[in-house]
Nucleic acid binder design. Structure first.
Ligand code: SF4
Ligand code: SF4
Lengths: 157, 157
DNA sequence: TATAATCGGGACTAAATCGGTCTGATATGG
DNA sequence: CCATATCAGACCGATTTAGTCCCGATTATA
């Protein structure tokens, strides 16, 4: 459904929760009860987010998790990328996607443009804005810009 | 991966192909060879598109398919909707999505705004533009507008 | 140092979805 | 009436997703 996977959805909720108190260190269990997401799932997500460099962990007793950067410096796009790889609406928008009919596809070039639009929409929203809801998002939405012309795919289409 | 299903992808390709010659009537087999998509899949897609009101079919000998409306009047968003239902990034952005933690979700309101942004991006692209690649898309991308304020969800967040 | 708390990595299963195929009914043109 | 071609739907295998569990590594603290 052009939809986010549920894991990614929960992941952003998790990050938003972390962003609400960026300094404090909380463990997986605490975050689970705060977000109402099941504990094992939270743990799994946090692992992925750590690996993606968005969250710092401290091990051992009294350990826990904390944002790796200031909430203003983390975009929703990064969260999505950490959890489910590059943002690619179509198979061909990531290199070597292996669609098979790329050569003859009339829609490919335009999908790429649409893909970029979506990507930039996600990149324009920071965790700080997610945590402090919606006022600032209004600005963000109009900030979507066309890419410079020379960035366009040099295809033989 | 925040990705389109392959069926939807092929569906837009199919529609783009139809839009390239909006007048002519072609049958499923012809469209399959033109798009390089397997024939049964094309047939399945066309059924869905007919049901969605985007394509007209004529049955019997010399039957085939044709766009129901002018290419300028059909948006990519409609194609996506016909093939995979309402555009909903998160489970809660469609009514009765049944997320379960909606009450306590800090991210919900903002996801809704992002969802609207993506939706409008898709609504801003017509099949005519897909068929005549990319020049006109540049305009479209900047045309994304914030919704009127009173359209915002009235939540107790 | 011993112990408890906590993360890290990965394997694993169940369920849902997706992509694709097939068959029979139905409608049209000749 | 027959050949052609869409229509509707069931159907299935493959893949992906969601969720759980286990065990080894690491650290604070008593
Ligand atoms: S080449 Fe065309 S069909 Fe293949 S993934 Fe890209 S847009 Fe889709
Ligand atoms: S309520 Fe929150 S967690 Fe549930 S679907 Fe909406 S955004 Fe996702």
């Amino acid at each position: 459904m052009l939809k986010l996977s549920k894991l990614t959805d929960y992941g952003t909720l998790l990050m938003t929760t972390l962003a609400a108190a960026p300094e404090s260190v909380r463990n997986a269990q605490e975050l689970a009860t705060e977000t109402h997401v099941s504990a094992p799932t939270v743990a799994k997500l946090l692992k992925l987010l750590v690996r993606g460099g968005l969250v710092e962990s401290t091990r051992g007793a009294h350990g826990g998790y904390r944002l790796a950067r200031a909430p203003e410096k983390i975009t929703v796009a990064e969260v999505v990328r950490a959890l489910e790889g590059p943002i690619a609406l179509t198979a061909c928008s990531v290199h070597g996607g292996g669609c098979g009919i790329e050569e003859s596809c009339a829609a490919r070039v335009n999908w790429r443009v649409i893909n970029d639009a979506v990507k930039q929409a996600l990149e324009g929203v920071t965790l700080a804005e997610m945590a402090a809801p919606l006022r600032s998002l209004l600005r963000t939405r109009t900030a979507i810009q066309p890419p410079p012309l020379n960035e366009f795919p040099l295809t033989r289409f």
